[in-house]
């Protein structure tokens, strides 16, 4: 049976890149698929050229080519990432970590209740969270880009971990809340409790997204991509 050469495999990788598949993990799966199909076509008709066989198989993916596959893969991994964030977040509401969560919430609550310029304080705190978030985000994705330049391989889940764009959008929410909150009188118990809990939750999310998950990135990447360990060993 005729098999594909290494050069032809490289050509298939190039082909997926030409059709907007940026990520190596997805390229690899599609390359194997295309290769299998081409070899199967050769078995039936040994005369068909490599490029013709490739075009025949590619047509089966429809008018949008690999686009749909890429999009759905992004959604699936995005979901996996959200689940990961949620898993870590829940840890802060179970023993033993809940002690830290409760302590900081109560402390904030007391400060909010007893500080006269509470509006400025709350706005400043949220601004701080936001600014540190954006700065770290910038540095992490830059570091990720540099890594990509040296390895030449982009991993979708890695891009999500170090780019976490889906969560960046959520960071504006507190400001909508702040704009619509009336601070004219002293802050009530309910408001104080709400803002202390909101702030602690946001700070926790930031800590999880920027520190905890990136520190375990290798582990999560190996879990998602068995080939990740294989590739990086070479």
């Amino acid at each position: 049976m005729m098999k594909l050469t290494s050069e032809q495999i490289d050509r298939l990788y190039q082909f997926t890149r030409q059709h907007y598949v940026e990520w190596y993990d997805l390229q690899t799966e599609l390359v194997d698929h295309l290769a299998n199909s081409i070899e199967a076509q050769w078995q039936e008709n040994p005369k068909i050229s490599f490029e013709d066989a490739l075009q025949i198989e590619f047509k089966k993916f429809g008018v949008f080519g690999f686009m749909n596959v890429v999009e759905k893969r992004q959604l699936a991994l995005q979901k996996r990432y959200s689940k990961l964030v949620w898993k870590h977040f829940k840890e802060f509401f179970t023993i033993p970590k809940i002690v830290i969560t409760l302590f900081s919430t109560v402390l904030l609550f007391l400060i909010f209740r007893n500080y006269s310029q509470v509006e400025i304080l709350i706005t400043t705190l949220f601004m701080l969270v936001l600014i540190t978030f954006w700065i770290s985000l910038f540095y992490q994705s830059r570091k990720n880009k540099i890594e990509y330049k040296t390895t030449g391989k982009k991993w979708l889940f890695k891009d999500i971990i170090f780019g976490h764009s889906s969560f960046a959008g959520l960071s504006y929410i507190p400001f909508y809340v702040l704009i619509h909150t009336d601070f004219s009188q002293n802050i009530g118990i309910l408001k104080a409790a709400f803002f202390s809990l909101l702030f602690v939750s946001m700070a926790l999310c930031e800590y999880i997204i920027l520190v905890i998950i990136p520190s375990k990135a290798e582990e999560y990447l190996k879990e998602t991509y068995p080939e990740y360990a294989l590739e990086n060993a070479n």
Binding site: H33, K60, F64, V69, K72, A76, L77, K79
Partner: peptide, 13 residues
């Protein structure tokens, strides 16, 4: 093919 891989990736997720 265009339906198979999205389905596999979703089941995996």
């Amino acid at each position: 093919e265009g339906a198979l891989y999205p389905a596999l990736h979703k089941l995996e997720a």
